[in-house]
């Protein structure tokens, strides 16, 4: 009996591996590893180095070790504002994604109809791969001055003036939420699957209301999914490019388009590199901080 418990899953793997030389896995994964390291890791390191160089209009940049690019970022009102806009738009988007995602993922996991379940998953996964440009295009038609929403509003109350919906931060949040919701739903759905329905049934049988059951039973079990989904949505909206450009308009600045402009138009590569690393490290710091806070609240919740 004990042997059965000790060996089960890895036995086959070990037997296969034993016959191979120890170098085999390295030889197999080597080419891909070198490829990704050379084409992504090395460029990122070079970009980090570049962010400490000095900008020079004639020579593009001068090799140096200066913090000027980072100092400029914090001193310049404009870039601080860009960062602030990016942060709060991302935070609101993530929150909206969470609220909508919770409802849909819960519905999807608990529906008894297998057909509905299968097609709902496909309907949610399809837009995930459609590309942000095509999906944002739909929002332009809806929110434009001559668009669908204004048309419908005019049908309802004649004589009302057209609403300026496009090129507002509300429009950007709407577009981003719509684009990122599938990511949240898919993440929550994968965790939802592992939650035993009988736990909820037990809670309901014992007299708790549906809302209490959701809050006290489902939500705590769903926490890892909620955390993963929020981090994903937050990172993706911090780095959004197409949506802010297309429905934010030329006067709405977020980080990703600003980096692109610094490289392609302003040609200030050291500053662009500094902006890029500010974006990466800020995203990483916020992720780590929220992970720590998440662990702490989870522990407090467990004690209570």
């Amino acid at each position: 009996m004990t042997t059965l418990v000790v060996a089960p899953d890895t036995s086959g793997m070990r037997a296969v591996a034993k016959r191979g030389r120890w170098a085999a896995p390295y030889a197999l994964s080597g080419p891909a590893f070198v490829f990704v390291s050379l084409l992504l890791m090395l460029p990122l390191l070079m970009m980090l180095r570049l962010s400490f160089y000095q900008y020079d209009a004639a020579q593009m940049y001068i090799q140096a070790f200066t913090l000027d690019n980072y100092v400029r970022f914090f001193k310049d009102e404009f870039y601080r504002q860009v960062l602030w806009t990016t942060l709060w738009v991302s935070a609101v988007t993530t929150l909206l994604c969470l609220i909508g995602g919770l409802a849909v993922a819960y519905f999807m996991a608990r529906t008894t109809s297998a057909i509905l379940k299968r097609y709902l998953i496909i309907a949610i996964v399809l837009p995930l791969f459609m590309g942000n440009v095509a999906r944002t295009a739909g929002w332009i038609i809806i929110l434009d001055n001559k668009g669908l929403l204004n048309f419908l509003l005019q049908q309802l109350d004649t004589g009302g003036e057209t609403l300026q919906l496009l090129y507002t931060s509300g429009a950007v949040i709407t577009g981003l939420t719509s684009v990122l919701l599938p990511f949240m739903i898919v993440t929550l759905n994968s965790v939802m699957h592992n939650i035993d329905v009988s736990l909820e049934e037990a809670s309901l049988n014992l007299g708790a209301s549906a809302l209490t059951t959701f809050r006290r039973i489902v939500l705590p079990l769903l926490m890892p999914g909620i955390f993963a989904g929020c981090v994903l949505c937050f990172i993706l909206s911090m780095n959004a490019y197409a949506t802010p450009i297309l429905i934010g308009g030329p006067k709405f600045y977020m980080m990703a388009p600003t980096i692109y402009k610094q490289i392609s138009a302003a040609m200030n590569w050291p500053f662009a590199s500094a902006l890029a690393f500010m974006l990466i490290s800020l995203t990483m710091v916020l992720t780590v901080v929220s992970a720590v806070m998440f662990n702490r609240t989870a522990r407090i919740g467990a004690v209570r």
Binding site: S29, A32, V36, L39, L40, N239, A276
Partner: peptide
């Protein structure tokens, strides 16, 4: 480690990765 590196193109912000590759 190797798995993380190979999956990293999904994790690293696309616009940052694109800029880094361009400068490279």
């Amino acid at each position: 480690f190797i798995n993380t590196v190979l999956m990293s193109p999904l994790m690293i912000p696309a616009i940052v990765a694109g800029s880094a590759i361009y400068l490279f």
